[in-house]
Amino acid sequence: MADPAFSRAGPGRRLRPELFVGQADASPQAAADWSRRRILLTDLRAVRGRAYPRITGLFREKSWLFFEILLPFLTTSAFVFVYRALQAPPEYIGFVVLGGAMTAFWLNVVWMMAAQLYWEKDQGNLELYFAAPMNLMSVLLGMALGGMVMSSTRAVAVLVVASLLYGVSFEVDQWLLLLAVFGLTLAALYGLGMILASLFLMWGREAWHTTQLMVEPVYFVSGLNFPVARLGFIGALAVATIPLAVGLDAMRQLAFAGSQVSLLPPLAEAGILVAMTVLFTLAARWSLRTLERRARIEGRLTMRWQ
């Protein structure tokens, strides 16, 4: 049977949002009986709705151009100058620039994925998310997509400006693999962000401090400014568990062909990223359900500022 939410009237197949609201049904059961298509479309609308403020926000308050692009570029520059002071080989400057660009995504995952549901709870939006007829994973996916767009602007700016200014020369032999590894790194990173977001549902004020704990310590074990292989066992552990570490190691090998210090070949690291993406997404789905249930039982969903 045709879904009443759609109409063939007019040019092409058109969504009729008015049919999602206040439609007359024979019974509450009938009202709750949604077709698969309708569920999917509602979830997609939720994804779009949650990604929208992050993307639109880029054009609303322009001060982010200064704070999000120029200043992080200066931070990256500080590490470039450390290597310059040490008269390090030129590829190390490239390592720092690549690491500096990737921090944009990690910071976004920590601040605007992991901690986001905690902020939403503080602001009183979380109840609305739970009450809305949609899968909460759609909200997380929307946050992730919006966050990727936001962070990409900063990452690209840091990468381009720093590369030009500090004369970084990339030697890429396998463009496709490099792009695939980059995409997989983002997928795994935001998958991890979704898991962390569900964990943050349970946390109170320590959430703020946990975000702090996930910045410098993660930069250190991920080898943000140096080859992670130099950390030995800690580096190997990071490559096995943190997408930033494995993604950076693979991208460095691919962007600076001939770079000697790495833990595994790029293809093997791409495999780890695929496994991480699948595992993190499934784990996020499970943990969101489990922790939501537990948070409901313990009354933590509406408890603010504790």
Binding site: V82, E216, P217, Y219, L224, N225, F226, R230
Partner: peptide, 19 residues
């Protein structure tokens, strides 16, 4: 954790270059 890690990042950078 934050300041100690920040210092360790720099120390490893120094060790990587050596000399």
């Amino acid at each position: 954790a934050k300041p100690v890690s920040a210092a360790l990042i720099l120390v490893v950078m120094l060790e990587v270059i050596g000399g």
